[in-house]
């Protein structure tokens, strides 16, 4: 869910249910490396609620677009991690079982 204003789309707070530091911290890391982002941070308003708020302020682009791009980047990173890991694993297997 997005909390922003209709006039100014460059800043918004995204409230994600059923998420925690796992996604929020990695997403914050990717967002902060995006040159279009001026400020980004996240908070967990209450430890008993399964919810995180991610605040994004940009230098001009709509915040939701920037968040979507960052998610896309994070996904691509994950895919690369997976393929690299699989390669390393098969390499280790072939070296140690032949």
């Amino acid at each position: 869910m997005e909390h922003g204003s209709y006039e100014d789309q460059t800043q918004a707070t995204f409230s994600l249910n059923d998420e925690d530091h796992t996604l929020a911290n990695s997403l914050r890391f990717v967002l902060n490396q995006d040159p279009r982002v001026s400020v980004c941070g996240y908070s967990i308003p209450h430890p008993s609620d399964a919810r995180v708020n991610i605040r994004v302020q940009t230098t001009g682009d709509p915040a939701s677009e920037v968040v979507k791009d960052s998610c896309q980047d994070l996904m691509l990173m994950c895919q690369h991690v997976r393929s690299t890991f699989d390669q390393a694993f098969t390499k280790f297997k072939s070296e140690n079982e032949s």
Partner: peptide, 24 residues
Amino acid sequence: PEVLFTEAVKILEDKCERVITELS
């Protein structure tokens, strides 16, 4: 354990995908 790791990476991907679909 190697399957667990690839599963974990896939779960992080799914989380990202969920955010993308919720925002669009």
